[in-house]
Computed example of a mutant assay.
Amino acid sequence: MKVLLVGEFSRLHNSLKEGLQELGHEVSIVGHQDGFKNYPIDYPIKKKWDNGFLKKLKVGIHLLSGFDVSSYLTYRQFKKNQNHFAGYDVLQLINENSFYCNYFYEKKILKHLFKNNSKTFLLSSGYDYLNVKYCFETPNFKSVIQAYLLGRISTKSFENVLKFKTKSFKKLHQLIYSNIEGIIASDLDYHFPLLQNSKYLGLIPNPINTNKIDFQPLEIEDKLIIFHGINTANYHKKGNDFFEKALKIIESKYGNKVEIITTRDVPYAAYINSYNKAHILLDQTYAHDQGYNALEAMAKGKVVFTGAEQQFIEHYNLSAKVAINTIADVDYLVNELSFLIENPNEIIAIGKRARAFIEKEHDYIKIAERYIKTWSES
């Protein structure tokens, strides 16, 4: 099977590609190299006019005329290489705005892809029209939109989510849905909003290539090491403000019993190794399930503070913790961290269970097989 994966922002498509290749399929990825993360892309689209004077000029042009220079330049790069993006058995979009273009140029790119490839599928692995609609209409549903509704996130920094509420992105959603075979969710946060959708094909967990991630059983000798990696652009969306407040209390409470490592905007290749000596990793506060960073840390055997709600426990039929469910509450975080610091044997046990869980439920070859089955039967 010949497969084109469109978009990459978490290493999901790279791990899926590796699994598909192990099964003998031909796979390529096209998309933007996502800022500082810099994931491998076969056909990279470069962000141009993205800093300095050219960025200011781009913003000025958009304010005066409404013309989106970034979208136009992305379309030009796609057009230049469009012969590489035809003749695939399966095309999979990572979300409803895989090229980060406005409606006019995203539509032009997508129409070429729909016309020149056999089957198209959509992933729900981030915010999209239906997910955002559901979260706003169901404010009790645990999501980052709760933080926005409470005023913790500014409208300006939330534009990449709010855009899916606009008329143009509703039109883009309708265009995509009229051309896809179906939609696949990558975890429970995207699964629940799609349950009543006629094109929903089900949840396929994120693929993790454990061959590339070494497991080291946790050993606690002198200090307990806590890692907090911050992506500045997503600071409030991940709940980093709650983590930082909790860590100040923990540092004051336990002193030299703990070591806290904090990084900001580290490239993926460095980030994945920056927490190797840590016992605990702080990931995010607004999720039901684990995203990619959390899963990779769990594969290393770390104790991860992330989404692990009751629905997650029931879905995977778990009898013991494989991660620490996390909420946006400083006292809760302090209590959970304190329990682990005072019960180090529990840290070691959770770390072992975390790795076993990843191997059982997220193995990249087993997940690739599930994709092939879903694509073939749809």
Score class of each variant (00 low, 15 high):
Tyr190Cys: 09
Thr262Tyr: 00
Leu281Cys: 10
Arg152His: 15
Glu314Met: 01
Asn95Tyr: 13
Asp222His: 13
Glu259Lys: 08
Leu337Asp: 01
Asn206Met: 14
Phe227Asn: 08
Tyr364Ile: 08
His62Glu: 14
Ala147Val: 07
Ile213Met: 05
Glu342Trp: 05
Asn234Thr: 15
Lys58Phe: 09
Ser124Arg: 06
Asp363Asn: 15
Tyr190Glu: 05
Lys171Val: 04
Gly66Ser: 09
Gln82Arg: 15
Lys37Val: 03
Ser125Asp: 07
Ala328Pro: 11
Tyr75Ile: 14
Phe242Glu: 02
Leu318Val: 03
Phe99Asp: 02
Asp283Asn: 11
Val132His: 03
Asn317Val: 11
Ser252Lys: 14
Asn317Leu: 08
Gly24Arg: 05
His173Cys: 06
Ile208Gly: 00
Gly24Glu: 06
Phe136Asn: 08
Tyr100Gly: 00
Gln174Met: 12
Val334Gly: 09
Asn325Ala: 05
Asn83Glu: 14
Gln310Trp: 08
Ile176Lys: 05
Ile347Gly: 05
Gly182Arg: 07
Val27Gly: 02
Asn293Ile: 10
His112Ser: 08
Lys119Gly: 01
Ile61Cys: 04
Arg370Asn: 13
Lys156Asn: 14
Pro344Asn: 12
Ile261Arg: 01
Arg353Lys: 10
Asp222Gly: 08
Pro344Ile: 06
Thr263Gly: 02
Asp187Gln: 12
Tyr148Met: 05
Ile180His: 05
Asn131Ser: 14
Asn317His: 09
His25Asn: 15
Phe141Cys: 05
Lys321Ala: 13
Phe357Val: 00
Gly255Pro: 02
Gln146Lys: 15
Tyr275Met: 04
Ile153Arg: 01
Ser10Cys: 07
Lys107Trp: 04
Lys373Arg: 10
Tyr177Thr: 06
Lys48Ile: 13
Ile45Asp: 05
Leu218Asn: 10
Thr263His: 04
Gln77Ser: 10
Ala287Cys: 11
Leu5Trp: 02
Tyr177Lys: 10
Ile109Trp: 07
Leu150Cys: 13
Ser378Met: 02
Asn231Arg: 14
Leu63Gly: 13
Thr74Pro: 07
Lys366Asp: 12
Ser65Val: 02
Ala323Lys: 00
Ala287His: 11
Asp50Glu: 15
Val303Arg: 02
Leu57Trp: 12
Ala270Val: 09
His279Thr: 02
Leu149Ile: 01
Tyr364Ser: 08
Asn256Gly: 03
Pro40Ile: 11
Phe53Ile: 13
Asn209Cys: 00
Leu281Ala: 07
Ile94Trp: 02
Thr74His: 09
Phe312Glu: 04
Leu162Arg: 07
Leu281Ile: 07
Ile358Met: 04
Gln146His: 11
His62Leu: 03
Ile184Asn: 02
Ile220Phe: 10
Ala278Trp: 00
Tyr364Trp: 11
Val322Asp: 01
Lys223Met: 06
Asp241Met: 06
Pro40Leu: 10
Lys277Val: 09
Val27Trp: 06
Lys366Trp: 01
Ser376Asn: 15
Phe121Met: 06
Ala185Gly: 07
Leu150Ser: 15
Phe339Pro: 03
Lys165Pro: 07
Arg370Trp: 03
Asn117Thr: 04
Arg370Glu: 11
Leu149Met: 14
Phe339Gly: 05
Leu57Ser: 04
Lys58Asn: 12
Glu359Ser: 03
His191Phe: 14
Tyr371Pro: 00
Arg152Thr: 08
Ala278Met: 03
Glu251Met: 01
Gly24Tyr: 11
Ser71Phe: 01
Val330Tyr: 00
Val266Ser: 08
